[in-house]
């Protein structure tokens, strides 16, 4: 049983969002980088739990990124990945990124591919579905629960307004979200061990980029809050009805 876990590098959730170079680039100065929370807390940790239940499970991490991704890859190895592959390219277009990961998946013949449901920077929710299509295998998105019995998986996925329990055979791609597992912190043994775990760097395959960023914008600033006295909440209801026309 081999699992490929896709790991992306994103700014910390408290990072200030600003842009440089005529609003074409994210201002990365002073930004703390983390493993995309969906990739780490739900997808990676659930995969580690599967390995804890069955030590024969092998966990490989894949990241598409420059050398500056290596600290977050080492952290993922410290949490519990066995080895990692970094495709040495910048992530710009989702199809380009998905094609790189699909290539790694083909070469490594994995039974299962985990992604987070989206990254918290680009919010694309695209990589998992694209990998599945390139490999022509099933894709279950927004998984909140994942169980495995021999080659059959039982997954609870989120749908609009509820949940669905589905059954799918391996191999498949699953995008993971909250509910799959609980956040963990790497322990000292993990951190020490991660230093010597294999981290292979490969060059990207030639792939066309289907999209490109033209420019970023920031939303207009709010005009400022209109405070209503706590003794007079009726005034708030009046404002919402007459001024904001929201109720």
């Amino acid at each position: 049983m081999k699992i490929l876990i896709c790991i992306s590098k994103t700014p910390d959730t408290t990072a200030k969002i600003a842009f440089t170079d005529n609003n074409t680039k994210f201002a990365a100065d002073g930004v703390q980088w983390i493993i995309n929370p969906y990739d780490e807390w739900y997808s990676l940790v659930r995969a580690i739990e599967l390995k804890e239940a069955d030590p024969s499970v092998v966990l490989h991490l894949v990241n598409v990124g420059g050398a500056d991704s290596e600290p977050i890859i080492r952290k993922a190895l410290a949490l519990g990945g066995d080895e990692a592959i970094r495709v040495n390219a910048d992530q710009s277009d989702s199809y380009f990124t998905a094609a790189q990961i699909a290539q790694i998946a083909k070469e490594g013949s994995y039974d299962l591919i985990f992604t987070g449901k989206e990254t918290i920077d680009y919010n694309g929710s695209s990589i998992g579905g694209m990998i599945a299509e390139i490999l022509d295998i099933p894709f279950v998105s927004h998984a909140v629960k994942f169980d495995l019995a021999s080659s059959q998986t039982t997954i609870v996925r989120e749908i609009d307004g509820g949940e669905e329990t589905v059954q799918v055979n391996l191999p498949l791609v699953v995008s993971c979200q909250k509910g799959m597992a609980e956040q963990r912190i790497p322990n000292m043994k993990g951190i020490m061990g991660a230093r010597t775990k294999p981290l292979k760097v490969v060059e990207p395959i030639a792939t066309e980029a289907l999209t490109s960023v033209v420019a970023f914008d920031l939303p207009p600033a709010k005009a400022g809050v209109k405070l209503v006295s706590a003794d007079n909440p009726e005034e708030l209801v009046r404002l919402l009805s007459e001024e904001a026309k929201a109720i």
Binding site: F19, Y122, P219
Partner: peptide
Amino acid sequence: VFSGKAFANIGIN
């Protein structure tokens, strides 16, 4: 993008 903290204008090629 950035979970609602900004927008990106993306060209489709």
